[in-house]
């Protein structure tokens, strides 16, 4: 199991958001987490990535290691990547120098040599093509003056650069028109391989037409209330969360 979450609870300022989440993602699989607004989807991704400010309990194991106490940068260097729903802007910080520092931190951590300038540039050019990110954007400060779609593509570009073992896509589809969604999804699909797992967090089924999941989990009120294959996503889209939940309760 690449990612194994057991009885994960998280609260912020005394309010409990996650109320005992259990989730297992084997290597190479794509899992989707769906849920209505306010169900705790973004909190789950933040907590897995190690964001400060939450009171947490329970266990998060990444490739067998308990990572709950790890700083976020250690999780990142180990190969945990989070594509943010709202990527922040870093005024004045050039995208290429930012990424070079990030990539080399990860390489150092896993015992690889740092990339020199020319091989780094070559790598950037290659990965930028994956999501059709223009060279002009690479020269700009991180996310500054980027459109919403460009920010999301930039997240996938960074994912490609950092070569993670596990990537969490937090509502990557939100705010994207159909063309941008296709570009982003194709980029993600090119990054799928038997070692890498994906956790795709989304409100709508739409993204899952492009990034086809192996499993779908439904998160409601801070807990995963049901899991199934991709047909579950279609049922949710058609009937809505409440109805599916009601049916679930009746049948159980």
């Amino acid at each position: 199991m690449l990612l194994e979450i057991e009885n994960l609870r998280a609260s912020i300022e005394g309010k409990e958001i996650l109320k005992g989440v259990n989730l297992s993602v084997p290597a190479g699989e794509v899992h989707a987490i769906m849920g209505p607004n306010g169900s705790g989807k973004s909190t789950l991704s933040s907590v897995i990535a190690g964001k400060d400010g939450y009171e947490t309990s329970g266990s998060i194991r990444f490739d067998g290691q308990e990572i709950s106490d790890w700083e976020p940068e250690i999780r990142a260097r180990e190969g945990m990547f989070l594509a943010f729903q709202y990527p922040v802007e870093l005024p004045g910080v050039g995208l290429s120098s930012f990424l070079r520092a990030c990539v080399n931190e990860r390489r150092k951590h896993i015992g690889q040599s740092e990339l020199d300038a020319s091989s780094f540039l070559a790598l950037m050019r290659e990965k930028a093509a994956l999501v059709e990110l223009s060279q002009d954007l690479i020269r700009r400060p991180v996310n500054q003056g980027f459109s919403g779609g460009e920010k999301k593509r930039n997240e996938i570009f960074q994912m490609a650069m950092l070569d993670p073992r596990m990537a969490i896509l937090d509502e990557t589809d939100s705010g994207l028109d159909i063309d941008a969604l296709r570009i982003v999804a194709e980029g993600v699909n090119k990054l799928r391989n038997p070692q890498r797992s994906l956790l795709v967090i989304t409100h709508y089924q739409r993204l899952l037409e492009y990034i086809v999941p192996d499993r779908v989990h439904v998160l409601i009120d801070g807990a995963i209330v049901m899991s199934g294959d991709r047909t579950l996503a279609l049922a949710l889209e058609e009937k809505g969360y409440d109805l599916v939940r009601a049916e679930q309760e009746v049948s159980s």
Binding site: A49, E73, P87, V88, L90, F98, L99, C102, L162
Partner: peptide, 9 residues
């Protein structure tokens, strides 16, 4: 958090 998530201290 964004920066540390990408591996920077």
């Amino acid at each position: 958090f964004y920066c540390t998530q990408r591996g920077l201290s």
